[in-house]
Amino acid sequence: MTTRYSKDHEWIRLEGDVATVGISDYAQSQLGDVVFVDLPAKGKTVDAGAEVAVVESVKAASEVYAPAGGEVVETNQAIVDDPSLVNRAAQTDGWFVKLKLSNKAELDALMDQAAYDAYLKTL
């Protein structure tokens, strides 16, 4: 499955009806050591661009926005128990939430890997 990215440095990967969301490797490196993650309740519905989680490092706090809208069907307890997982595996085991998307077409507005890499070069 292809991974897409938002300008706020979230990634999203669709498998079937459910998309997994996390923060990009670039985002975790900018945050520094992640010390705390606040995840939403299962069943919560979010619109594209709305805050879905909060991630804190020692020196920064950031909201994580939903790259596409949908219902939260699963959250990653592993990063709550061990926030350093976000640093070690931001784009794999360090995922944040799984969303059942309400409109898959919203993904089309996001960047693919090549576009995101190019975007990072402009920062």
Binding site: Q30, G32, D33, S57, K59, A60
Partner: peptide, 10 residues
């Protein structure tokens, strides 16, 4: 992300 470059572990 406002404190880039400030390490928080020695």
């Amino acid at each position: 992300m406002n404190r880039q470059g400030r390490p928080t572990t020695p």
